[in-house]
Design a protein around this nucleic acid. Structure first.
Lengths: 363, 363
DNA sequence: ACTCATTATGACATCGGTGTCATGATATCG
DNA sequence: CGATATCATGACACCGATGTCATAATGAGT
């Protein structure tokens, strides 16, 4: 592989002048520049990042640790939104920065992380993003203080900068949207109550009801999923929870589910019991996993879990930390997504809207 | 970040001795080694790959160009097996080699490839793997002769080493398996005839029939998919093709489809016409996209498209090229996968098996 | 104790760029 | 035309690790 010295020799100038040409530095006489550029393309010269990194003490590398590559498509069937979307957001945001992204995949084994971090340190990455597959707390081995670290979709108790989905606002806005459509008796079949997401979303659900002056109904709030994959148990839990709701004297008009996949399974169960969607009961999911929300009939109302945005924000934050341009902000940073509409929720005319509909055409 | 000089100073030895300790070189007195190791952990010293790469003229890096990261989950709904599986195979195989994998994503834009290759050359990658999303011919910008290149799931006309799925054998074995189950009238609804895969699989289908002494029936071989995504047109094509088969005076007992997704769509169409699977007609797919084959009822018989294996073979080939241990072999290398069983194909007792069943219990 | 063979360690140069400073070549102006 | 400012270029050192060679420390054998 040709070096800057080869180019210098071929074009009859000093290496430093070649360096000036490739970097567009200072003034170089046109004739000289041409000679050098000719030599560069003749030799197919490409500068070495290793040498540059040594001299400048800057690698231009950013590390990414994830399990999304090795686990993603396999798990699509039995989990939430693929964390690969976060990786996509990171890639996209990093592209513009000129840094090179070094991706390391854990293969799902957390104990491989120290090894991966070590490799990153050997490459002198300027920063590091750790991506978790769902909103949770993590405990990462410490990285050298010089290496900036940002957590995406997770956080720790050491105050490491983190970017998280705003589960509270997501569920809050979703329930608020249901209330706006006239629903007042709204059930919520949650994911495992041990999940961070569930804790925050539950609060969002409760606050949205409270804000609308709707009393809490404990019988409408049921955990109906596990945090470990067990197809049969999941199916039973969901069936049981739906059965309890449908057996109530006052059946809810709308049911929120922990995620889109749960809602999808519920479609099947509800239909097998002769419940018509959305006429008999309205349904909402969470995640806005388009493969589900847009494929189901009727299309599923949901709340966007903004994975791409989380990746982008995490990248921006990291780049700011690297450039020293980070403006003070609260940690963790919460990213919220919109409520995504769907035909799985029907409008319930309330007395007020009924009155107003006398004078106007209801849309 | 601490350097080898810092460690040397702290432990009172020369940098060269520190180098010996971290590399386990030659003999170093136990006492010295201990001093050095203490200093290393005290300082949190990690050797710099950049410096090593410069000195040794070996980067330890391998590049990977793909569109799988940015496009994968989005497209799962409307295409074949995700090429991310190839990336997974590559990652797994590369891990063991000690090389670091540099992943570059095209974002689906081929015109970004030269830029990515340039970045890889700046990093002095020792080799490069290009992964295509489906079996096809590609035209890559030339890389410097020193950089080894392997094509995965694609090939060119310059004799670049390539690893491809053995579409011929896959379809051949699948049809052979159908024949072994007693089918003799076997239809094949192919993907777009413009695809490489279709060309080879068609030949496999024809040869398997010929080998069993079954005459070709042109009316049973119908292209029924497009190579551009168009949901409505695809649906119409498939419906029409199935309609033609079912209207024949001699309806086929088994239908092979271009891939599992086509077969899945066919399940719906066939059932809507009152055709029972597999009693009225047997069905086979291609790809063994487990999310489909194992989820459908009845489970779908298929032929494995060995993406992970293609990734592994491509990696092995590249590493051999890098180490100079490549044994001569035909190019492209074809990787074949097994027929994967499913309940979508029924056994048809032939006269011969009928006779044999008199004396034995049929399994 | 003294040679000779190991063993243990260090000095130095090198890999490929680029910052610093110096110097040579042009241009500008009185 | 000569002095000075500006432009163009090069010499040299350095970033961090390590191969080469030299030298110092240790041990073995007589």
């Amino acid at each position: 592989m040709a070096t800057i010295y080869d180019v210098a020799r071929t074009s009859g100038v000093s290496p430093k002048t070649v360096s000036r040409v490739i970097n567009g530095d200072q003034a170089v006489k046109k004739a000289t520049r041409d000679k050098v550029e000719t030599a560069i393309s003749a030799l197919g010269y490409v500068p070495s990042t290793a040498a540059r990194a040594m001299r400048s003490n800057k690698s231009g590398l950013v590390g990414l640790i994830t399990g999304a590559i090795s686990l993603s498509p396999n798990r699509t069937e039995n989990s939430g939104l693929p964390d690969l979307f976060i990786v996509q957001g990171i890639q996209k945001a990093m592209e513009a920065s000129g840094k090179t992204l070094l991706i390391a995949d854990t293969g799902g084994k957390m104990d491989r992380v120290p090894q991966l971090i070590r490799t990153f340190e050997e490459h002198r990455v300027e920063g590091l993003i750790y991506v978790a597959d769902h909103h949770r707390k993590v405990e990462l081995p410490s990285v050298s203080a010089a290496t900036k670290l940002v957590l995406a979709n997770c956080y720790d108790d050491r105050g490491t900068p983190a970017v998280l989905p705003d589960d509270y606002r997501g569920q809050f806005n979703l329930v608020k949207a249901l209330i706006a459509k006239g629903h007042r008796r709204i059930a919520y079949l949650t994911l495992s109550p041990r999940l961070e997401a569930t804790i925050h979303r539950k609060k969002g659900y409760q606050d949205a009801l409270a804000q609308a002056g709707i009393a809490q109904a404990p019988e409408l709030l049921i955990p109906a999923d596990l945090d470990i994959p067990d197809h049969d148990a999941e199916e039973q839990l969901l069936w049981d929870a739906l059965d309890r709701l449908l057996s109530l004297p006052d059946v809810p008009t709308a049911i929120c589910f922990g995620n889109d996949r749960m809602a999808m399974r519920a479609y099947g169960i509800l239909r097998s019991r002769g419940v018509s969607l959305p006429d008999d009961v309205s349904v909402a999911g969470y995640d806005n996993h388009k493969m589900i929300t847009q494929t189901l009939y009727p299309t599923l109302m949901s709340a966007e879990l903004p994975y791409a945005a989380i990746g982008i924000r995490a990248t921006e934050m990291l780049l700011d930390m690297i450039n020293g341009t980070l403006t003070a902000q609260t940690n963790p940073m919460l990213v919220s997504g919109p409520v995504t509409p769907g035909n799985s929720v029907r409008d319930i005319p309330t007395s007020i809207t009924k009155i107003s509909s006398i004078g106007r055409t209801t849309k």
